[in-house]
């Protein structure tokens, strides 16, 4: 079965400030216009981890059904500026026993800005995997 989920998200200046306080990452390229320009960015850029965290909402239909995100990998291809509108798409890449793998892409005006992969597992399969690891299977 083909699974494709899409969302749009906007990374606001307020979210960037909130994430700076949450993470303690006060790198000024995220917060200050002049500092961003010094690094050849037209505006302050969003924290990579803020983008990554916000895109996870796309997996909520799975986590609400008891699945857990075990792995999430993301490549930050182009900078995301405050108030950029990002179009996120998740496509099911493969499905194993108890696990689903999604391919994530984020585009800004058709330009690819982030790309990633996400693995979801059912709790029962995590327990099974841990049990097999511990028993050396």
């Amino acid at each position: 079965m083909c699974v494709r989920i899409s969302r749009t998200l906007t990374i606001t200046e307020e979210k960037i400030k909130q994430y700076a306080f949450l993470s303690g990452d006060f790198n000024q390229i995220h917060l200050d216009q002049k500092e961003a320009e010094r690094y050849k960015f037209k505006e302050p850029i969003a924290h990579g981890m803020l983008t990554m965290g916000l895109t996870l909402e796309i997996a909520s239909s799975f986590t609400e059904k008891g699945m857990r995100i075990s792995t999430y990998e993301m490549q930050f291809i182009k900078p995301i500026f405050q108030n950029d509108l990002i179009y996120i798409v998740a496509k099911k890449k493969k499905q194993d026993y108890g696990s689903i793998y999604l391919e994530i892409t984020g585009r800004k005006q058709n330009e690819l800005v982030v790309r990633g992969e996400l693995a979801l597992e059912r709790l029962s399969s995590i327990h099974f995997n841990n049990a097999t690891k511990e028993s050396g299977m």
């Binding site: 790198n27 000024q28 390229i29 500092e35 690094y39 850029i45 924290h47 990579g48 981890m49 990554m52 857990r68 995100i69 075990s70 792995t71 999430y72 990998e73 993301m74 490549q75 930050f76 709790l123 995590i126 841990n130």
Partner: peptide, 16 residues
């Protein structure tokens, strides 16, 4: 030396 820019991130959680 200067501000680091994030290129790639991998996060793996083995338990809840």
């Amino acid at each position: 030396k200067t501000a680091p820019i994030h290129r790639k991130q991998t996060c793996v959680c083995h338990s809840e």
